[in-house]
Write a protein that binds this DNA or RNA. Structure first.
Lengths: 190, 190
DNA sequence: CACCGCAATGACACCGGGTGTCATCGCCTA
DNA sequence: TAGGCGATGACACCCGGTGTCATTGCGGTG
């Protein structure tokens, strides 16, 4: 393709994960990441707006998957069922290949406030995409917002369990289970 | 008290809000804020961990209010009712004096991604406090988590409406209404 | 084949947020 | 009156992030 080594973003992510694992997120500078990847600091910021973003890139893509799946759900589907479709569609992106990387990312994010903060922003973006798609198919507020919030909660619960050490179950199963638990819990609130 | 002007934090917040209003959040440096307040940059960071925190200080206090109110709710109270108590308790902190400042803060936060991100972190902290207090009184997961999430959603909806231009209604009323709408909406999900 | 446009990178200076460290200043207490 | 101490100032420093211009070769066009 080009004269440079290909897969720049991948290489940067790999280098970053290695270094974060060795020394921790904030004992690693962007210059060190790019050095290991054979690039320069400036190039890093051409691919990621932020130092944090290297760990969360591609989440915008997930938003589209969620929204499209909700839009494509059969007409008589309830909000909960539509959200279930979205989770199922997302599960395709969480195969065994991605599991190891997911674990490494989660380990880094776990004890860094700044990274947790960014994760929340990504989830909020996801929620907004789901809520928008639900409104599009006629679900009124605040039900659309609520269903989206529950979907986000189910997603993050499923992701946590999926990346927990020793887990053997598939993402799709965990997501469906988390969603079902949450929907059932709505009956116990009042 | 001391030989310096009192109310350092307040003065910093006032100076910051003025400047943000005049030129926008990221066209104002911390040095400029402290200059207007008659202090130095270093002192700013002794009072706020971050530039962003100046707009969100005191939220930890709210977490305690929420948690305490939930813990103090009468025993037969449902999760939704306990959350309602928390919102009512919080309403005491949102009198008319605070409304103007709330509007100014919201205006600054509205179109700045970084600030929105921090707001999400604060809300997540609030949610965690509520969920913890609910578990403490025997509400099992994921109902505790869900109730907390709904409480957070009601809170932020109420705050948004309360600070909307032209609003005349009290925070307590708006919060109770938002919560009731959300609880009612749970019945329409499935 | 020579030329040119273009996309990705490098090089480099610069700004501003955030921190470590030591000095200063004055209130409070013994 | 001596000293503890808490809050601030002064100052140097690091690093994340950006603006800008130069460089490098690939692909298309005549």
């Amino acid at each position: 393709m080009s004269r440079w080594e290909p897969n720049t973003r991948e290489r940067l992510l790999d280098a970053a994960l290695e270094l974060f694992g060795e020394r921790g997120y904030d004992n690693v500078t962007v210059a060190e990441i790019t050095e290991r990847a054979g690039l320069t600091k400036r190039t890093f910021f051409r691919h990621f707006t932020d130092k944090r973003e290297v760990l969360f890139a591609g989440q915008e893509f997930l938003s589209r998957v969620f929204a499209d799946a909700i839009a494509a759900a059969p007409e008589p589907a309830t909000p909960a069922a539509a959200v279930g479709r979205a989770l199922a569609a997302a599960a395709a992106e969480f195969g065994p290949e991605r599991q190891a990387r997911g674990r490494r990312i989660r380990a880094v994010v776990a004890d860094h406030r700044d990274l947790h903060e960014r994760e929340l922003l990504k989830r909020a973006t996801l929620n907004a995409a789901m809520a928008g798609a639900l409104r599009e198919r006629g679900v009124p507020d605040p039900a659309a917002e609520l269903a989206a919030e529950i979907g986000g909660l189910a997603f993050s619960t499923a992701f946590r369990r999926w990346t927990e050490p020793g887990n053997e179950r598939e993402f799709a199963v965990l997501a469906a289970e988390a969603l079902a638990e949450l929907v059932a819990a709505t009956a116990t609130l009042d």
